[in-house]
């Protein structure tokens, strides 16, 4: 397909003085699982709301599944599935009633819906809870029920806003299991998340900061682009050690992680031994130093440091 599934150009949205989305260009191809990754306040939720037409942009173009959202929001919504950050089901309706509600809102054939519903209920393990009211479900079950409702009309584009926030690991796995199967059905998925672990599951990532995409690529590309070498140091006390290492030349970023320091280095930065002895010189106890494979989290952190420096 030549036409991208989701495309925005120069998208802007401000709330009074605050610029939430600032010239955002996005291009997501059909069948991708695209991660919109950024910290809180980066503009993720606003971007998704602009894509659904729930908010009107101040300027810019939005095309979703070949439909101009600004001109034909209802046509776009027929092709969109949206899982908002806040729980969007009716709390005092049962799961079955909520599914029926969304099937009606999207005017789906009830026979097809029944088939689709059973399939999704099985995949989420919610089959035996269909009569339970949505407000009485656990956090993970709520999200799974909401995902079923967002998928009941077989959207071509699915927008997920922090889908696994506050969700237990088992439900998280269930949710992703369903999401992984969507590209095979021709569905494009956009996942907004602040979480690097979640972002790593995506086929491609756009890093959003200050309302704009600052970099995009596969998780591997981003790691390669923004981290060179990574060293893990087991040391005590970490706070003092962190400050010390941070000030060494050739060090890009340091993060503390439970008794460990993860040190992101330039290619010509200090070696593991040099760091170790620098710490020992200051009288800090060093229990171990090793080179590790950098992960997406390190890349995102480095990217943030680069931006702060700029």
């Amino acid at each position: 397909m030549a036409e991208a599934s989701v495309r925005t150009k120069g998208l802007c949205k401000r709330f009074g003085e605050i610029v939430a989305v600032d010239g955002l260009d996005l291009r997501v191809e059909a069948g991708e699982i695209f991660g919109l990754v950024g910290s809180d306040g980066a503009g993720k939720t606003t971007t998704l709301r602009l894509l659904t037409g729930l908010m009107a942009p101040d300027s810019g173009e939005i095309m979703v599944a070949g439909v101009d959202v600004r001109a034909y929001p209802e046509d776009a919504r027929r092709r969109l599935g949206y899982l908002p950050q806040t729980f969007a089901l009716h709390g005092d309706l049962s799961i079955a009633e909520n599914i029926r509600y969304f099937a009606d809102l999207f005017c789906q054939d009830l026979g097809e819906v029944a088939e689709r519903r059973d399939e999704l209920l099985d995949a989420t393990g919610l089959a035996e809870f269909t009569e339970r009211r949505a407000q009485d479900l656990s956090g993970g079950m709520k999200q799974k029920a909401a995902l079923i409702c967002a998928l009941i009309h077989r959207p071509t584009v699915l927008l997920l806003d922090e889908p696994t926030r506050g969700v237990d690991p088992v439900s998280r796995r269930d949710l992703w299991q369903i999401v992984y199967e969507l590209p095979a059905e021709g569905v494009t998925v956009i996942v907004a998340t602040p979480d690097a672990d979640e972002a790593e599951r995506c086929s491609r990532i756009g890093v959003i900061a200050g309302g704009a995409i600052v970099d995009a690529g596969t998780p591997e590309e981003l790691v390669a682009r923004h981290t060179a070498r990574l060293i893990e140091v087991a040391t005590e006390p970490t706070r003092q050690a962190r400050r010390l290492v941070h000030d060494m030349p050739g060090v890009r970023a340091v993060s503390a992680l439970g008794g460990h320091l993860r040190v992101s280095l330039e290619d010509d930065g200090p070696s593991a031994d040099e760091i170790s002895s620098a710490l020992a010189d200051e009288g800090l106890r060093v229990e171990g130093v090793r080179e590790v494979e950098p992960r997406l989290e390190d890349a995102l952190l480095a990217l943030e440091v680069e931006r702060d420096a700029a």
Partner: peptide
Amino acid sequence: EAGSFEGLASSPIA
């Protein structure tokens, strides 16, 4: 307030 409005409004209802 409850959030269900977002589900309703993102459907193609007039």
